[in-house]
Amino acid sequence: MFELKVRKVGKSLGVVLPQEVIANLNIKEGAALYLTESPGGGYQLVPYAPEFEQKLKKAEDIMNRYRATLHVLAQ
């Protein structure tokens, strides 16, 4: 667990991420982060869009089920 300090940034508020968190998230300056609501009422900060991950899993499922058909169509 990391304690983050909330600071004023212009007219907004922001937090500064420790180097260890930046390394673990594998992010660079300007990267997008997504704050998602957790089932227990908390929040989770992730470096990917959860909706995109769900769509990608569905696409992979479709590609696996119709692999032969897609192979024929690709020719």
Score class of each variant (00 low, 15 high):
Ala31Trp: 03
Lys28Cys: 00
Gln54Ile: 12
Glu29Thr: 10
Leu45Tyr: 04
Lys11Met: 06
Arg65Gly: 03
Thr36His: 04
Lys5Leu: 03
Val72His: 07
Gly41Met: 08
Glu60Phe: 13
Glu3Gln: 12
Tyr43Gln: 04
Arg7Tyr: 05
Val46Pro: 00
Val6Ile: 15
Gln75Cys: 01
Asn64Gln: 13
Ala68Gly: 06
Asn26Glu: 02
Ile27Val: 13
Leu45Ala: 03
Asn64Val: 12
Lys11Ser: 06
Tyr34Asp: 04
Ser12Phe: 11
Asn26Cys: 00
Leu4Cys: 05
Gly14Asn: 01
Glu20Tyr: 10
Leu56Val: 06
Ala74Trp: 10
Leu35Cys: 11
Glu3Trp: 11
Glu53Asn: 02
Gly42Met: 12
Arg67His: 08
Ala31Glu: 02
Gln75Trp: 01
Ala59Lys: 05
Lys58Gln: 09
Lys58Ile: 11
Gln44Asp: 11
Gly30Lys: 05
Leu45Glu: 02
Ala49Tyr: 11
Leu13Phe: 14
Pro18Cys: 03
Pro50Asp: 03
Phe2His: 06
Met63Pro: 02
Gly41Glu: 06
Phe2Gly: 01
Gly30Pro: 00
Glu37Leu: 15
Val72Ser: 12
Arg67Leu: 10
Tyr48Ser: 02
Pro39Ala: 04
Lys57Tyr: 07
Ala23Asp: 14
Gly14Met: 04
Phe2Val: 08
Ala32Leu: 15
Gln44Tyr: 12
Leu73Val: 13
Glu37Arg: 15
Glu20Phe: 04
Gln44Glu: 05
His71Thr: 15
Glu20Leu: 08
Tyr66Lys: 14
Gln75Ser: 08
Ala32Cys: 01
Leu45Cys: 01
Asn64Trp: 13
Gln44Lys: 14
Lys55Asp: 01
Glu20Val: 12
Ile27Glu: 10
Ala74Pro: 02
Gln44Met: 13
Thr36Tyr: 04
Pro39Ser: 14
Val72Phe: 12
Glu29Trp: 05
Leu35Phe: 01
Ala23Thr: 13
Asn26Trp: 03
Glu60Tyr: 06
Ser12Asn: 07
Ala32Met: 13
Pro18Thr: 06
Leu56Asn: 09
Leu25Trp: 13
Phe2Pro: 00
Ile27Met: 08
Val46Arg: 01
Phe52Asn: 07
Gly40Arg: 10
Lys28Glu: 11
Thr69Val: 07
Asn24Trp: 02
Asn64Leu: 15
Phe2Tyr: 12
Ile62Val: 15
Ile22Cys: 00
Tyr48Asn: 05
Val6Ala: 09
Lys55Ile: 07
Ile62Tyr: 14
Ala68Lys: 15
Glu60Pro: 02
Pro47Cys: 09
Lys55Leu: 14
Gly42Arg: 10
Pro39Cys: 01
Ile22Tyr: 01
Glu53Ile: 08
Tyr66Gly: 00
